[in-house]
Design a binder for these strands. Structure first.
Lengths: 342, 342
DNA sequence: GTGAAAGCGCTAACAG
DNA sequence: CTGTTAGCGCTTTCAC
């Protein structure tokens, strides 16, 4: 039986059984075996048991590639972030992952390194995998990428920030966050406030926070000087503090673009014997745990990053399941955490 | 032309052009178009230009699913880690990602939540995607998982720890790392040394470090008391310190299972006015940046995590390219970083 | 509830 | 260097 003279192609290296073989072993047709596995309710219970037994006995592992080709859909979700080195994206990914995995979706992770051309390439690749949806960090894309996505009929979710989105959008208002912290510093009586960030062209959301910060200061008739560092991290924060003291010795507060910089600066200030906040106030953004463990505790803004991922995933899943989406856009907000560093 | 009376199936939702259509537009056969894209050197330069032009004009995006089915290989690399909440795994993933992506491989990320049954399910799924290789964190797997992998003929790379591996192995010796830190503490004159870890059954590599620690202490005729916390993080470190002071008030040093715990404890000690290391020495493991920014700097052990990922990926790629692998196992080692906390 | 036939879009194998 | 043919393993469609 089934003994062809020539078998022109048998690539499946090892003797991986196919669905057809499982079906034969169970005495049913391939399609019934398929249904037994994927739509159990469409198959007689006893038939299903026979199929499952055969699956077990033969050690069958479904070929998902073939399934995807035939059905023109994979259960892949493309997730594109600019960096894995930044906790912020990791936490969003965590939220996405737990929610999607629980529904049987598999994440396909891409890293653009803050390069929109790279993003475009990743999107192309991911479309080629018949992804069920795309989640990407941010609203800025190359024109080619926009064109490609405009012709794509699956859910597109842009996370992190809020604005004019391609489709779905879950995020927070970074400009407003910048304003919020600037207002806090003004309330604390600071009049000479410096903003220190890193690579604001790439980390343009930090740039938006600076814009908000600047707006508030200028409305109060104050200058909004900026120091832009060429990389981030704790070391950079310490270096930023040093530069600030050198070039802006008269500032009474520094608004850092994120908690890594702010924490690095705060710990460096301790080493230098600068008393925070009396001699210098320090503020950050993100609400990382470390900021709440150092003394003085860091004044910062906490964003619900994991929740952002969960919400984004839930909304995408709703759409995939054909449920009505009430709003295309969700503002997850933020929270000013006032520590003793300001 | 090519106008069939009935088109039984056209799933590709939008009008995504196929390779065949590109080929027609370029006046070549499908296989030539395929070669022009995937094996440019096998095709006449002018033919290739025509194909590329047609690709551009039609906005063709290759269907990778179909390609994988036909060739029985995807360029997927399955990567399985127990958690995304732990920096350690993220850094390894980063190393893997940059190296694999540079060679055109796509990572398929799975998270087991420290559950070997979940790992088994992930492995099954990933095998179904015709992954080119599997990278997994750790050497411990369920029996079902081992059986499944034993019949798989693609490269398997186990990272993080060293030991009897399924195939390739890149990691470090955690028991030795535990010994190393214990010896350091003994050298510093400590005789009452406590080990504090979290969920050692899940984080069994921390358990191995404790085993090494204990071995050294017992050889010196000392006890090796242990406090096991039910979760990790900075908060837990602070709580661990509190528990230590309460139940082991006479200890002169605490060896924490990782830097998160150690940092949380160290910062908490500062708040309590406990002078480190004079009244209490504190040591960690991982060599996270934060430990080198706090005062006193944390004594810890640094492991080359990103390098571990890069090396693991390189070795897998060598194998995939058919090159000879010189050694199946690589010890990436570790480095004792002596701060002022001990 | 089950099956037969057709084909998803691409590439391997050969032939020229 | 290019083309023809025959599938990869599965699911859709439609019939029973």
């Amino acid at each position: 039986m089934s003994n062809e003279a020539h078998s022109p192609r048998r690539r499946r290296g090892s003797e991986q059984p196919t669905l057809k073989e499982v079906a034969e072993a169970a005495g049913v047709s391939a399609i019934t075996a398929s249904r037994a596995l994927n739509h159990p309710d469409q198959v007689n219970e006893r038939t299903r048991a026979r199929v499952l037994e055969a699956v077990e006995r033969l050690g069958y592992v479904p070929n998902l590639v073939a399934g995807s080709l035939a059905s023109a859909r994979s259960r892949f979700i493309a997730v594109i972030v600019p960096s894995l080195a930044n906790t912020v994206f990791i936490e969003v990914i965590q939220g996405l992952q737990e929610t999607f995995e629980a529904q049987g979706y598999q994440i396909l992770l891409g890293n653009t390194d803050y390069d929109t051309e790279r993003e475009y390439q990743l999107v192309r690749t991911f479309l080629g995998w018949s992804c069920s949806a795309l989640v990407t960090a941010g609203l800025r894309h190359s024109q080619a990428c926009r064109t490609l996505l405009a012709n794509w009929d699956k859910p597109i979710m842009e996370v992190m920030e809020l604005g004019e989105a391609l489709d779905l959008n879950v995020g927070l208002d970074h400009t407003e966050a910048g304003r919020c912290m600037a207002r806090h510093l003004l309330e604390r009586g600071h009049r000479r406030v410096l903003f220190v960030g890193a690579r604001l062209a790439s980390d343009y959301r930090a740039g938006m926070r600076y814009a908000g910060h600047r707006e508030v200061l200028e409305q109060a008739g104050l200058a909004a000087p900026l120091i832009e560092l060429d990389h981030g991290g704790l070391d950079a924060g310490a270096a930023g503090l040093a530069r600030a003291l050198e070039n802006h010795g008269d500032v009474s507060a520094i608004h850092f673009a994120n908690d890594d910089l702010a924490t690095g600066a705060l710990l460096h200030a301790q080493r230098l014997g600068i008393r925070v906040p009396h001699e210098l106030a320090i503020a950050g953004f993100n609400g990382l745990p470390i900021g709440q463990h150092i003394t003085p505790r860091l004044t910062t803004i906490r964003s619900p990053r994991q929740h952002m991922g969960q919400l984004a995933a839930s909304e995408v899943i709703r759409r995939l399941e054909g449920k009505r989406i009430q709003r295309l856009q969700h503002d997850v907000g933020f929270e000013l955490l006032i520590g003793e560093s300001t």
